[in-house]
Nucleic acid binder design. Structure first.
Lengths: 64, 64
DNA sequence: GTTAAAAGTAAAGTTTGTTTTACTTTTTGT
DNA sequence: ACAAAAAGTAAAACAAACTTTACTTTTAAC
């Protein structure tokens, strides 16, 4: 599972800490997801989707 | 988080056990997700999406 | 109305996602 | 070059997703 969070975050000029706050998760969680350490939960994926105004499929790519 | 899995599964005429096998998860996992006991992981949501030929947003509805 | 298949449920255990604390490295601005 | 902010990283602890085993209830077919 790949994601475009780092780029989308850059487009909105947000720091990891700012994004984390808007998502109500820790900064480390944002960092870990960006770095591909693990995938977010589905609810968190929906939050990202709504925050960035993109579909989940536009943000995450399944690499099976 | 609500989902339409039960209906989509009925449309494809699959049992929970059959769907579980196609998803490579246990039957209890399918049952629990259908009954709303918890949300699937994002990778599992993608598998469901691809199996049913529907977007994640068409299958799951975020109720925050 | 019995039987068999499917669905529901539950406890104990493993794995994965997330938090907290804390420290190091990189980037940015002066 | 220096300081401050941002990003990276890691371990311990907790929470949520998922498995396995096993049993009960509902549904469908005869």
């Amino acid at each position: 599972m790949k994601n475009r969070i780092k780029v989308l975050r850059a487009e909105k000029d947000l720091t990891q800490a700012e994004l984390a706050k808007q998502l109500s998760v820790s900064r480390q969680t944002v960092n870990a997801i960006e770095k591909g350490k693990f995938d977010p939960s589905l609810p968190l994926a929906f939050k990202l989707s709504s925050l960035f105004g993109k579909s989940i499929e536009e943000i995450f790519q399944n690499e099976e």
